[in-house]
Design a protein around this nucleic acid. Sequence first.
DNA 1: CCGCATCCGGGGCGATACTG
DNA 2: CAGTATCGCCCCGGATGCGG
Lengths: 216, 216
Amino acid sequence: MRSYGQYCAIARALDVVGDRWTMLIIRELLVRGECRYTDLRDGLPGIATNLLADRLRALEAAGVVTRRQAAPPVAAVLLTLTERGRALQPVIDGLGRWGIPLMVEGPAPGDEFRGRWLAWPAELFLSDHRPEEAAVAIVLRTSAGEAPMVIETVDGAVHAREGECDEPDAILTGTPHTILGVLSGQVTLAEARDRGLGFEGDADALARVQPHALAA
Amino acid sequence: MRSYGQYCAIARALDVVGDRWTMLIIRELLVRGECRYTDLRDGLPGIATNLLADRLRALEAAGVVTRRQAAPPVAAVLLTLTERGRALQPVIDGLGRWGIPLMVEGPAPGDEFRGRWLAWPAELFLSDHRPEEAAVAIVLRTSAGEAPMVIETVDGAVHAREGECDEPDAILTGTPHTILGVLSGQVTLAEARDRGLGFEGDADALARVQPHALAA
DNA sequence: CCGCATCCGGGGCGATACTG
DNA sequence: CAGTATCGCCCCGGATGCGG
């Protein structure tokens, strides 16, 4: 990026991560961890391939991303955030928190979606109200072809990860918008089921982590 | 900005504040509060006037900025952040914190600087180690023509603001880089004075708020 | 299939000039 | 003071090609 030419901490930060697509590349690397060029491409629908290559080079030069060869059997380059790169987590979190209100209207026509993008809303809205009880796991399925998300309670906190789960306490199936409504507590489970949400398992497991705002 | 077309909180946020210059406009409005178009221009050296106008329109449409007429005597438009706009403070703070390490090498040739940009480093590095004592005020002067910054202790916290101060406990005069070195504790007062820092007043007032890292 | 490089059209951006 | 007008350039987006 063209430098702003300002001796200011914020401008200097934006000189490195202010380019178009750059923060979304950081988002993908934060939520996926180490992954391949092609994985990044899949997680960044709309990006031009040359731009992704350019950005990765710039981020590598800036000490934000590192590149390493995968183990012999799979000939692939693996990309990871450095410690310096992971230090951008608060910025991404802040952006995600600020962006949540922009999602209540649902996706615009043609909007892309990936299940793992629910990780921030999930960890933002949910908390474990009964940490003394046994841990629960809730699976979110937003699309048939995609890997589901698993929401798990761990020591009173709630974490979201990509992947399967052997014996989930509950399974939610539906559109991203509907699932987001349930996670945020803006829609009750009953309402959501009327709107097409699929639900299996223990409703209490869901209530345990849902925000208390339901009372309002 | 062209939308990223992704139903994701971070992408949605960047659809609004991801454009070039936009976050720096937010920075200026956060640190200055209500101000005029021309004030913004001065605080954003390098921006094209049409871009500033474009961005302000977009931010107004997005509910981030509001515009109002000043009181009759001065015919001027005053721009302010809305509540929604001020909610970007954590993002700006995160960027500023992340950008601090990029400033230790000093300004590049031709870099612009404004005294008020020291507000983030000041509040980030400094803390009041003896809150039980009377409040202190330290003035920073980085340039003859510019308004100085005042650092004040208030209830154990440290705040930075633009403006003068009647009876400061200490006055630092020097280049931004030198002053930053002192504020961050990377350079001792004695070293900084050797490098051209001007210092008047009570060295103890400075030590009271400087980071403890000096021991290292 | 992976990881790019290259080419090309369009528009955002930057600089300057100008106006109510 | 607060913008609008204009213009060249380069970044961006989309498509294609290509070596490993």
